[in-house]
Amino acid sequence: MKTVAPGTVIFHRHRGYGVITHVNLLTGWISARFGNEQRTLDLNLSSDEVQHADGEPILFRRAPPDRMPHARLMAVVRALHQAGYQKLYLYSWPKPSGLHWRWHLFTGPRNWMQRTWREGWYGSGADYNNNPVMGWGDSPGATTEELIHALARFDPQGLAQALGRDEDHTAWFAQVCELLLPGYMYSLNMERPVGGQLVEAPPVPVVPVRAGLPAYAGPAIGWPPGWAGLWTGTHVMPARRPSFSGLPELKQES
């Protein structure tokens, strides 16, 4: 399926040619302006017989597009690992709403909890859902190679910091990509069973990146290298004993 994004030229049999001004890849609703009309028209890609400008139908229900960028980012990271940029890491975790997942690319020391932040190296599926680009000057539907070139032009100094060897993580990441791509992504969040406590080192959660895909049924994925040291105890924040006196609690010497 061709890319559907703001700026895409479409054809509607009752309106003619138009340009998409807004898109929601989760629901399939778009806004488009036709001809010299001042107001936009809301259409649904599943039922309103919208086509691309060349006449190719947009089969939103049969071949839905990726609503999150994580699978494309995984392909970028894998290709850069193969080129020697092994100190490049992808962290992904869900937003509180559970509808979208955030992503964060970072370089340098592999520290999952204290990651380095650079402008343009992080984002959210909520933004991608309305405009499927990474924000590096890339175009919607860019290939993996085009995304790498866009990132290199956008922040060459940041990408240079990823140059180096991290064989353990590179091997883990290559195995994960082999199992998940192109339809699934991993999420580094610790899921709590319903009505229970956090489980000691559960399998890494796997999420489909587009609608219509079944739940992941492949082999369980282990946590990335460097994560084992984070699994201590039951992973529950310690609760302080309530104090009703208003006086500071003195630490007892052992």
Rank of each mutant, 00 (worst) to 15 (best):
R241Q: 13
R210P: 05
A228H: 12
P208F: 03
A201E: 10
H235N: 09
G222C: 01
P203M: 08
G212Y: 07
P242E: 02
Y216C: 03
A217Q: 15
P205G: 05
T234V: 15
V209A: 03
V209Y: 02
F244Y: 14
G212K: 07
E200S: 12
S243G: 08
L230T: 07
L230C: 04
G246C: 03
G246R: 09
Q197V: 10
P238S: 06
T234W: 12
H235R: 15
E200Q: 13
M237L: 13
P203G: 09
E200H: 15
F244T: 13
A201P: 03
P225R: 02
H235C: 09
V207M: 08
V207R: 15
I221L: 06
P214V: 04
G212F: 08
G233N: 12
P219T: 08
P242K: 12
G246T: 06
P225I: 00
S245H: 10
P203H: 11
Y216W: 14
H235S: 10
A217V: 04
P208K: 07
G222I: 01
S243A: 12
V204A: 04
V204C: 12
W231Y: 13
W223H: 05
G233Y: 11
G233H: 11
G218R: 06
S243T: 14
V206P: 04
P202Q: 05
S245M: 05
Q197C: 02
G233D: 10
G212V: 09
V199A: 12
W227V: 00
P208Y: 07
A201K: 15
I221H: 00
F244S: 09
P208C: 06
G233T: 12
A220Q: 14
G218E: 02
V209D: 00
T234N: 15
W231D: 02
W223L: 01
Q197M: 04
G233W: 09
T232P: 00
A215Y: 02
W227P: 01
G218A: 07
G226P: 04
L213D: 02
G226R: 00
P205S: 07
P202I: 07
A220N: 09
W223Y: 09
P208S: 08
Q197G: 04
T232W: 03
I221A: 00
A220G: 08
Q197L: 12
L198Q: 04
P224A: 00
P225E: 00
W223R: 04
G212Q: 05
W231E: 01
P214M: 08
P214E: 03
S243C: 11
R210K: 13
P208T: 03
G222L: 00
G233I: 10
R210F: 04
P225A: 01
A220H: 10
P242Y: 11
Q197N: 05
G229M: 09
S243K: 11
R210W: 10
A228K: 13
P208R: 10
V199D: 02
P202A: 05
E200T: 07
A215H: 11
P238K: 06
P242Q: 04
V204I: 14
L198S: 04
H235G: 03
W223F: 07
R210Y: 06
V204G: 01
A211D: 12
A239N: 05
Y216Q: 02
R241N: 07
R241K: 14
P238M: 06
Y216T: 01
P214N: 07
P238A: 05
S245G: 04
A215G: 14
R240M: 12
P219G: 03
